[in-house]
Design a protein around this nucleic acid. Structure first.
Lengths: 214, 214
DNA sequence: GTCTATATAACGATAGAC
DNA sequence: GTCTATCGTTATATAGAC
């Protein structure tokens, strides 16, 4: 059950394309190098930082030269962009979902549970983002919008005229989920158990457990 | 009450030295340039990242050349080290305090309140740290230990054999405080009100409000 | 798809004059 | 305390052969 920690960056369209065109029997598919670059990149960006990781390092781990990377990605920023695309889409979809539902305790619990799932299933990308918050400020628009996601989500979960205390509560619940997962995921053997514990506590903090008024 | 957001890096010993030796009447004290470097650095490290900020940029904002910085600091890393020293000392003291007290609800509330105070009073440095988590991995020991602070603090707040749920709860409370403060501090007019709201909610999440069993 | 070779630029840091 | 000048290194990115 630890494979939910994989990099998870391919889109559904990518996967379909693979199935259609990939008739080889060897293990190395046509898009495999690209995926391996992504895997190495997410690891190095997390441990040494985006700006602290050179394309030379990535290439060396892959066993190719720096120039080869430019066949698969137009730039270094293009690599990190490809890594966060899927996560970004999931977060946008979550915010849209929250927007489309009434602001009840049930909705909040549902949204929080799904947020935990998104984080847990994209563990590596999520960690990388948290380790490289500052560099996102210097990047193109698409990546930057990630930083506003928590605020946008809170806006959909509390009433527009909610008092500070309730806005703070919801923002703190999101922080509790993020940090709780980040600091505990590599310390516990069963990540599925962890995600259920985190979900449960998040709902308790948000006061939207079954039976509570919403 | 917004001046609690200032950089707050000078040590008590520094301040004493200033008082003793500084008899000039002009506004520029002997250690002022060093302090101004620190102020500019913490701003740039937060917005553009540590590795994304060059010494040339810091020097330009200060109106001097790059070389002048080396009179005040031995290296770039020495600058960030000086910035986090005070925060690090406060966190170590907090963990020691938690270690010295019994694990009661009252202790937990006291520690959480003081953690909120530390964060609120060192707002700028705290933000910078959260925006540059990855680069701390590549640095010398002193700065690195900051990353273990949350875990060490949780270890002192829950029983050694506490179940996952209670360890997760306390880690999530720390995350709630950190993220809650970071995302809300520049959105609310009264930071003192915010710190009280955050403290109150943290104690509620941790189930250590007055009247609860501990 | 990957290579060699290179363009171009910026970085952190130091030497030594003033 | 700040300057000019520079060293040595590394970075992202591209051109063109294979």
């Amino acid at each position: 059950m630890n494979d939910i920690a994989e990099v998870r960056v391919a889109t559904a369209a990518d996967a379909q394309a693979d199935v259609r065109t990939d008739t080889r029997t060897d293990a190395r598919s046509r898009t495999d190098t690209r995926a391996r670059i992504q895997q190495i990149a997410v690891e190095l960006f997390t441990s040494r930082g985006y700006e602290g990781t050179s394309l030379r390092e990535i290439a060396e781990r892959l066993g190719v030269t720096k120039a080869a990377l430019y066949y698969h990605f137009r730039s270094k920023e293009d690599i990190i962009q490809s890594l966060v695309e899927d996560y970004q889409g999931q977060m946008d979809a979550l915010i849209d979902l929250a927007r489309s539902e009434p602001r009840t305790a049930k909705t909040r619990r549902e949204i929080l549970d799904r947020y935990v799932d998104i984080v847990a299933e994209r563990d590596q990308v999520f960690r990388m983002l948290h380790q490289n918050q500052a560099v996102l400020n210097t990047m193109a628009s698409a990546v930057r919008t990630l930083k506003t996601a928590p605020r946008r989500l809170v806006d959909q979960l509390v009433e527009p005229d909610a008092p500070l205390r309730e806005r703070a509560r919801m923002m703190m619940v999101l922080g509790a989920i993020s940090v709780g997962w980040m600091y505990l995921a590599d310390q516990v053997p069963d990540r599925h158990e962890l995600s259920e514990v985190v979900s449960g506590l998040a709902s308790e903090f948000a006061r939207c457990e079954p039976g509570l008024p919403g």
